[in-house]
């Protein structure tokens, strides 16, 4: 934990792909959604943010995407402060939302083609799109179907394929396993592992303690806008994460060690 914060504050900044440096967000209605969040995700690492609704997970992702400006602090992607150079920063991020809603009138392949081009990837062939869809577990017969006929899980897979095709160094995942069945969930974990091996820095918000423990390098628990606990999986070895999580949530304990 301390090592990570030293990266944020000092010379280690360049090493981390995703950095939140004392990031706070107070909305216009006065709600403090995020309170002095500091975290860092290095290339080849997965960071899982756990927390209930309103804990500040999605606000953190929105700040990294610069959909909102921070009240104080900085969200940094590959050394780029997102609210200073949002367009450049976004080029380095692939994003999968909780409910992937693509263009229902388009087929899976058409959606992939459109979003790949938006992401600056203009040279993919149809075969490469098919390979990406197969990689996320979407069967070939579904590739040419319109998304209006897709289940939530199938759409989610499409969204992940889009993120893969963007080939960005950082990936933001907002509740990515929420629509997946257990088998697809397992496949997804394996996929994340592959992406990590490719050197992607992955920041994932989730309610799924089990999956977080299974795949993440670092786990942070958020409550009411604060990061109340942050530990590596090694630090968590021997501890009961579920119990920790419930304790932090119930007691609302402040400040991670």
């Amino acid at each position: 934990m301390n090592e990570t914060l030293s990266q944020i504050d000092g010379s280690g900044r360049q090493e981390s792909m995703l950095v939140a440096a004392h990031l706070s967000k107070r909305y216009e209605d006065g709600v403090l959604a995020l309170d002095d969040l500091s975290l860092a995700v290095a290339p080849g690492e997965i960071y899982a943010m756990l927390g209930g609704n309103g804990a500040g997970k999605t606000t953190t992702i929105n700040l990294f995407l610069n959909f909102i400006d921070p009240t104080s602090g900085q969200a940094i992607v590959d050394g780029i402060v997102t609210h200073e150079e949002p367009l450049t920063a976004r080029q380095k991020i692939a994003y999968v939302s909780e409910n992937v809603m693509l263009y229902t009138n388009f087929t899976a392949l058409q959606n992939l083609d459109y979003f790949a081009r938006l992401g600056g990837q203009n040279d993919y062939s149809k075969e490469e799109y098919r390979t990406a869809l197969l990689r996320v577990g979407l069967q070939e017969e579904a590739h040419g179907k319109r998304l209006r006929d897709f289940s939530k899980g199938m759409r989610q897979k499409c969204g992940i394929a889009i993120a893969i095709l963007k080939d960005a160094p950082a990936i933001l995942l907002d509740e990515p396993t929420s629509g997946l069945d257990p088998k697809a969930g397992l496949e997804f974990i394996s996929l994340l592992d592959d992406l990590r091996s490719e050197g992607k820095a992955i920041l994932m918000s989730t309610h799924d303690i089990f999956r977080a423990k299974q795949i993440a390098n670092t786990i942070g628990i958020m409550n009411e806008g604060k990061l109340v606990m942050q530990k590596t999986t090694e630090e968590l070895r021997g501890e009961n994460l579920e119990e920790l999580y419930v304790n932090y949530m119930v007691s609302g304990m402040a400040v991670a060690s």
């Binding site: 959909f67 692939a94 939302s97 809603m101 992401g119």
Partner: peptide
């Protein structure tokens, strides 16, 4: 409403 605007602007689109 559809959610595609968010996904679109997650890319570097002015």
């Amino acid at each position: 409403e559809q959610g595609t605007l968010r996904l679109t602007f997650a890319n570097g689109i002015p």
